[in-house]
């Protein structure tokens, strides 16, 4: 799995800063997304991860700096599950079809659209759930439904906000495999996560963020005690296990020892 990004450039942030009121969230961010990129943005809560995604999406305007996009770039976005009202009266198929809202003047989907929705749901293994209400899905199925909605647009770049937040270990593994597959298919992927061992350590390229870019590179480059301390503000121990980095939260370890 590659992911450091050497293909054509799709998105570029240059010297970007962002603020909510007088509170500066991001400072001096230089960041670019290439065609073959697979990057995780890691950082603590409030470090500006979601804001960085929202700038890339064009939802938040930077206070300084520039965002450049390749012409006709197709971006899809998978939001956090917690931001959605799951009681909203739509089925899985209706939710996925929302991707085809732009420029459509008829409420009913065409046969081609119905086939496309069925195809993408089948690919993600939730074809049998098409007519279910979205409330009746598990967390992993809800996440897959959002993937389906994002993929229906045939994106070149897929941005995901904490895709494994609140899902179980098995679902997290499925997500990782699915994302790797999509990356193999040629979709550039950028996601945010604060899950160092479950998610970040498995990705080919990481950006450590705490209002500014603290470190960037492979997990071996940035999952180090010094970079992690600068990112999260706490000392962490890093072990090597089967060629992968495993981060030990020393504070948690100490509290569990004292509790035991």
């Amino acid at each position: 799995m590659t992911g450091t990004g050497v293909g054509p450039e799709l998105l570029r942030l240059s010297g970007v800063s962002a603020a909510y009121g007088h509170h500066e969230v991001l400072t001096g961010i230089d960041f670019h997304i290439h065609e073959d990129q697979f990057t995780g943005i890691v950082g603590p809560s409030g470090s500006g991860k979601t804001t960085l995604l929202r700038i890339l999406l064009g939802i938040v305007r930077p206070t300084t700096g520039t965002l450049e996009r390749a012409d006709g770039l197709r971006i899809s976005y998978v939001p956090q599950l917690e931001t959605i009202n799951w009681n909203f009266p739509v089925t899985v198929a209706e939710c996925v079809l929302m991707s085809r809202a732009q420029g459509r003047w008829t409420p009913r989907p065409t046969r081609e659209e119905r086939d496309a929705v069925a195809g993408v749901l089948d690919r993600l293994g939730i074809g049998s759930l098409a007519q279910r209400h979205i409330r009746d899905l598990s967390g992993g199925q809800q996440q897959r439904m959002f993937f389906a909605r994002a993929l229906l647009r045939q994106p070149q770049v897929l941005l995901l906000d904490e895709p494994t937040s609140g899902v179980d270990v098995s679902t997290r593994h499925d997500m990782l495999h699915l994302l790797a597959e999509l990356h193999e298919d040629g979709i550039a992927i950028v996601l945010t996560t604060h899950d160092l061992n479950g998610m970040a350590a498995h990705l080919p390229h990481l950006v450590c963020l705490n209002h500014r870019v603290v470190g960037e590179g492979t997990p071996a480059d940035v999952l180090t005690p010094d970079v992690l301390e600068a990112t999260f503000g706490a000392r962490m121990e890093v072990l090597e296990h089967l060629g992968m980095r495993v981060v030990i939260d020393e504070a948690r370890d100490a509290s569990s020892r004292s509790a035991g």
């Binding site: 976005y77 939001p79 009202n85 739509v90 929302m98 809202a101 732009q102 459509r104 409420p107």
Partner: peptide
């Protein structure tokens, strides 16, 4: 409502993603 049914549905359900998706 009929002409903008899909866009209204998307914007009502998830305005942020709707915006990103071109609505």
């Amino acid at each position: 409502v009929v002409a903008r049914y899909r866009a209204l549905l998307f914007a009502t359900f998830d305005p942020e993603v709707a915006e990103v998706s071109g609505v």
